[in-house]
C-alpha cells in the first residue's frame, strides 16, 4: 500500500458471534470518490461503522485521515461528514435548522454554522426550500438534506451510505452529479457505499468491492473493469462455407484479439473499438459468414462479481 490514502485498513476482522462480517481486510482508499460496493450483507455498513468509530473491530487496525480512530476519534469525526442510509431526519424540524445544528455539533461557531447550512442547502439545490419542515419534503429532497448536513461543516471526507436509495432515475443522476461535484470542486473525498454497481461505475475513481465480508477487489475503476473494449458477434454459416465461423474466429485470433466461442456466438475483446471493428469486418467479409447480431460488450463491475468463485 503506497501513496496518500484517506482510509487505510489492515487485517480488519469483525466477528458477530459465529458470523464473520469482515474477514481480514486490507484496504487502501486514496483521495477522490471511492465506491464501496457489495450486495446487502456484504459488510459495507459494518466497515463504515468501524471507520466512523461506531463499532470496534474484533482485530486489525484502521487509519482515517492519517489518524487512529481509537486515539483521536473525536478529531477524526469533526472532519468527517456522514449521511446514513436510514432516514434520520426529524420530521418537524426545518431543513436549515437541522443542518445548522449538526454543523454546530461538528464544531462550527453558531453564526458560521447558520451561514454554511444555507450555503450547503443551496449547493444541493434546496436553497428555496430550506425553511420547509423536513417532514413535508420528498424522498429526493430528504436525501439532499442528508448530503447537505454531511458537507456543511467542511469535512475532508464524507461517507455516504446508499445516497440514491429511493430516488427516481432523474433524481439519481442529480445526486451522482452532486457527489462528483463536491469532490471535483471542493476537494472533499467521498466514500460512497452502494449496491448499485452501475452508479459506482459512473461516479467513482476507485472501487472497493466486498462479498460476504471478504475483499473481492480494491483498485482504480479503470484497472478493475479494464481498458479493453469488446463486441459480441452472432454469426450464421452459409451453405457453401460450412467452416466459416471457425475461420472467422481463427482470423480474429490471428489478429491478436481475444476470442471466445460459444456455438455461433463469438465474444471478441480488443484494445479499442476501431481495431476491433476493422478486424471483425475484414474477417467476416473474407470468410463469408453472415452476421445475425453484433453488439458492443464492455467489462463491468458486475462481471467482476460474476467471476468470483
Amino acid at each position: 500500500m503506497q501513496g496518500v490514502t484517506v482510509i487505510t485498513v489492515r487485517g480488519l476482522t469483525m466477528q458477530f458471534g459465529a458470523q464473520r462480517a469482515l474477514d481480514n481486510l486490507d484496504i487502501a482508499i486514496p483521495p477522490g470518490v471511492t465506491g464501496l460496493v457489495g450486495a446487502n450483507g456484504a459488510g459495507k455498513t459494518t466497515l463504515m461503522s468501524i471507520v466512523l468509530g461506531l463499532r470496534e473491530a474484533t482485530s486489525g487496525t484502521v487509519e482515517v485521515l492519517g489518524m487512529d480512530p481509537k486515539l483521536l476519534g473525536s478529531r477524526i469525526r469533526a472532519r468527517v461528514g456522514y449521511a446514513p442510509e436510514r432516514n434520520v431526519l426529524p420530521e418537524d424540524m426545518k431543513a436549515v435548522d437541522f443542518v445548522k445544528h449538526l454543523s454546530e455539533v461538528r464544531g462550527l461557531p453558531r453564526d458560521e454554522a447558520r451561514n454554511r447550512a444555507s450555503d450547503s442547502l443551496w449547493l444541493v439545490g434546496l436553497g428555496e426550500e430550506r425553511f420547509r419542515a423536513i417532514g413535508t419534503m420528498s424522498t429526493g429532497q430528504r436525501q439532499r438534506v442528508k448530503l447537505a448536513q454531511a458537507i456543511a461543516a467542511d469535512p475532508k471526507l464524507v461517507l455516504l451510505d446508499e445516497p440514491t436509495d429511493g430516488l427516481d432515475p432523474m433524481q439519481r443522476d442529480q445526486m451522482l452529479a452532486l457527489i462528483r461535484q463536491i469532490n471535483d470542486e471542493f476537494g472533499i473525498d467521498v466514500l460512497l457505499s452502494s449496491h448499485l454497481l452501475e452508479e459506482v461505475e459512473r461516479v467513482c475513481d476507485h472501487v472497493v468491492a466486498l462479498d460476504a465480508g471478504q475483499l473481492v477487489a480494491d483498485g482504480p475503476l479503470a484497472d478493475l473493469i479494464g481498458g479493453n473494449e469488446g463486441v459480441e458477434l452472432e454469426l450464421v454459416e452459409i451453405a457453401d462455407r460450412p467452416r466459416s465461423i471457425d475461420d472467422v474466429a481463427d482470423a480474429l485470433a490471428a489478429s491478436g484479439l481475444d476470442v471466445e466461442r460459444d456455438g455461433a456466438v463469438l465474444t471478441v475483446v480488443g484494445p479499442d473499438t476501431d481495431v476491433l471493428a476493422d478486424a471483425t469486418r475484414d474477417a467476416v467479409a473474407e470468410h463469408g459468414a453472415r452476421i445475425r447480431r453484433l453488439s458492443s460488450r464492455k467489462r463491468t463491475l458486475e462481471d467482476l462479481f460474476m467471476e468470483q468463485p
Binding site: G73, R77, L102
Partner: peptide, 13 residues
C-alpha cells in the same frame, strides 16, 4: 429516529 447514530458520527461519543 436514528439521530443517535448521526450524533455518534460527530465528535461526540
Amino acid at each position: 429516529d436514528g439521530m443517535l447514530g448521526l450524533y455518534l458520527s460527530t465528535p461526540l461519543q
